[in-house]
Design a binder for these strands. Structure first.
Lengths: 228, 228
DNA sequence: TGACATAGTGTCTATTATACACTATTATCC
DNA sequence: GGATAATAGTGTATAATAGACACTATGTCA
């Protein structure tokens, strides 16, 4: 135990709320804890911040170690510092929220985690620590961001139809939207590039689009406001 | 040095970006550091988080110790965790942003601070650590919040005129607003209670108002959206 | 009492949001 | 190969909201 300090220090962790959208549902990735405390319970992926990595680095590392996910959209959410949030000792956790193109991604359980599994946000099991509070905060943030920032595209495959985009908005926001008005609004942003491809499946094939992040960047710098 | 741990730990601090509005200007409260590092330079008020207090408690305590301020609007902003942000060792800082009814408040310098002083946001001196980054983040947040949350009232005295409110919005957002349209919009929210008092000073006395936070709470729960 | 300083007020127009229903294209099944 | 099922795609009329715009009102002070 070679690390000594003049005053007691809280330990620092990161925890990630990872959202995915699949089968018409918004889902969250949870891991089954392999170690005490709360061994066997479901929890958010996360772990201790090393002294030689930034918070963002720690979040990405833990995410990959515990779930196998890489290269996802990741953003700091809030820092939770209640005194008894961890039964072992004083632990402050910097929470992140992540968005995953679920259809494409492979997840796996690894290191310290017995299992990793996607849960619909309407069927979250009992969570370890204060992870339910963190999850709730993240869900509110996602709902808030969806309207005025182009984060929805992070949850869809790179090529998507307007119907898929609309279903995403309806599911996450819990509302129902008028098809014609939605399409009008989306198209008026001119941030979607129509591809020379159509979707497969039953019914009439649909035009596929991709989001144009560069154009969004340029417009943002000119004071443009995304709003759906 | 009695506190030893198995792994090295970052130290945890809080830093506060305190905004006030006075003489038609948006100002920030800075302290002159009395100790190394950066002794003699200006910095945000803040300090180490004790192991037996929450982050919010630490922010309020440091704010009072270093500036004498109590009972102000305080909200967590962002957590800064770059590796070399402090030259001494690895320090992670949870930043807060605070809004003060400046006209009323008394500030004083204290503990570890040689001086505390209000600076117009357009004339910020060179700041210690990464405090300029923190300040910039806070200013962006304030501008963003002003439009869709009733935070402006936290910067005004409890009794204020519509002109004062408008000037606040114009100054912080850096725009100029139409008087009649602004008043129409504000009044349509019906969150201001007219008082049986008028303002002093040159020109025609103005109706004084106060903000009704209870009504705002009630409306918020019913899905009301503040928007100015 | 006149000049100065600031408060307060309404209408018309343009823009944006909302409500609303049918036709089009593909695959499948008989 | 024609009917059916499934989903895509399209336009207009109305309501609501936002924006432009200029004069009168009320107090103080010289």
């Amino acid at each position: 135990m070679p690390y000594t300090y003049q005053y007691p220090r809280a330990a620092l962790t990161v925890d990630c709320v990872v959202f995915g959208f699949d089968e018409g549902e918004l889902k969250v990735l949870l891991i089954e804890r392999g170690l005490t405390p709360f061994k066997g319970q479901w929890a958010l992926p996360g772990g201790f911040v090393r002294v030689d990595e930034t918070l963002d680095e720690a979040a990405r590392r833990e995410l990959e170690e515990e779930t196998g996910l890489r290269g996802v959209f990741l953003e700091q959410l809030y820092t939770f510092g209640e005194l008894k949030r961890d039964p072992r000792e004083r632990i402050v956790s910097v929470a992140y929220f992540a968005l995953v193109k679920l259809a494409l991604s492979q997840t796996r359980a690894a290191t310290d985690a017995a299992d990793a599994r996607w849960f619909p946000v309407s069927k979250i099991p009992k969570l370890a620590f204060d992870h339910l509070t963190i999850f709730t905060t993240a869900l509110e943030r996602l709902r808030g961001k969806l309207r005025y920032q182009p984060v929805g595209f992070e949850l869809l495959a790179p090529k998507f139809t307007l119907s898929q985009l609309q279903h995403l908005y309806e599911t996450v926001l819990g509302t129902s939207l008028d098809k014609r008005n939605f399409r009008k609004k989306v198209q008026s942003l001119s941030l979607l590039i129509p591809l020379n491809e159509t979707s497969e499946g039953p019914g009439r094939p649909a035009q596929l689009f991709r989001f144009d992040p560069d154009k969004y960047e340029r417009l943002t710098k000119k004071g443009f406001n995304f709003d759906l």
